[in-house]
Design a protein around this nucleic acid. Structure first.
Lengths: 204, 204
DNA sequence: GTCTATAAACTGATAGAC
DNA sequence: GTCTATCAGTTTATAGAC
């Protein structure tokens, strides 16, 4: 509708976007249950019906946050890879893109982690495991591909996947909880390279 | 007093221990804030004053759980290593012991993660970062030791540490959230070996 | 001291005017 | 699209009986 016709700048500062932003900040800081609809709308400077107009409910707003972030990750899996890329390059590319999406949605990732590791807080169920599994499967597939193509040493592809995902998860956790000592994209690259060198047939 | 003189079996099933166990189960399942003192004592079959006698408060009980688990981890850092052990062997040993402690205190670790990643829930502050940092520092030290001794390739010891810790963290996260697909101690060993082989000068 | 009954406050959510 | 006004359900606090 008219919303789609707006320039991008207007969209980013739209009430809808500002509500999403305020909610993600508050949910991340205080938790889903402890954050009230009143606080969210007050932070944006609008009234409650505006929130219900856009999202139907507090749960709807939460789900919008979760699903939009999940979609950003899932999109990475369907993106076309550069022609002629090696398995190593594809693994690195996927890992880096996922890390960037993670950083762009840092507040939402904080909420996800809090719900995932902690009590549900009354928030509607979201299948975080499935998302994680999709990614793990894709990395496993890429490792098996590289192994079949002679790029990686013959071995247990699952163990190699664990080593690769471990670096990824650690980089994400640092970003979330210890930003002052974070690995950053560059640290993730170097740790991933280290693992990839270890499983590669070619010697650096 | 008399408590110290009791045989170990009696200690494990003492009211104090049963309170700790019940509290860790409830905190892990429902969160610290949502768990009432009433529920804890009801689960053990005692009255509230019993809890206040042993721990002073709900906070005191919580801190006892956190500190006893933290101590189990910190003890690993001070334990004497087998004479003549290589850096690889020391790293593997530390990682495996830490993983075992993690599994033994699984419920408490669940609480730690919930507090660490989520809202404080009114729980008293515990410096989880410091504990994590102590471990990371120790692994880094061992990597540097191995590098100085020619056991590991010359490179960025911090990056190597990240790769090693990544596998450890992933194994712990699986144990916590996806026990049905867990790496287990054996998976951790193999992933750690993979990384260690990659940074070793000796070829397997 | 402990329990129950009730009141006050706050929650997510809605109706209807503009 | 946004507002004012208000809903019903829940939690929280407290007063008062036991």
């Amino acid at each position: 509708m008219s919303e789609a016709a707006r320039p991008a700048e207007t969209l980013d500062s739209s009430v809808r976007q500002r509500l999403l932003r305020a909610a993600s900040d508050l949910f991340a800081q205080k938790g889903y249950a402890a954050t009230t609809v009143r606080e969210i709308v007050a932070a944006v400077g609008v009234t409650k019906p505006v929130l219900y107009y856009y999202f139907g409910s507090k749960e709807g707003l939460y789900l919008e946050l979760m699903q939009s972030t999940s979609q950003s990750f899932l999109k990475l899996l369907d993106e076309p890879v550069p022609a002629g890329a090696t398995a190593s390059q594809r693994i690195k590319r996927l890992g880096e893109l996922a890390f960037q999406v993670f950083c762009e949605h840092l507040q939402t990732m904080k909420i996800m982690h809090a719900i995932y590791y902690g009590p549900p807080q009354g928030a509607p169920f979201v299948d975080f495991d499935a998302l994680h599994q999709r990614f793990q499967d894709e990395v496993l597939r890429l490792v098996q591909e590289g192994m079949a193509g002679g790029e990686f040493r013959v071995g247990d592809a699952e163990v190699m996947t664990w080593a690769l995902l471990g670096a990824e998860h650690l980089a994400m956790q640092f970003e979330l909880c210890m930003p002052e000592r974070r690995m950053g994209l560059e640290g993730l690259r170097r740790a991933t390279d280290l693992v990839l060198e270890g499983i590669s047939t070619a010697k650096a």
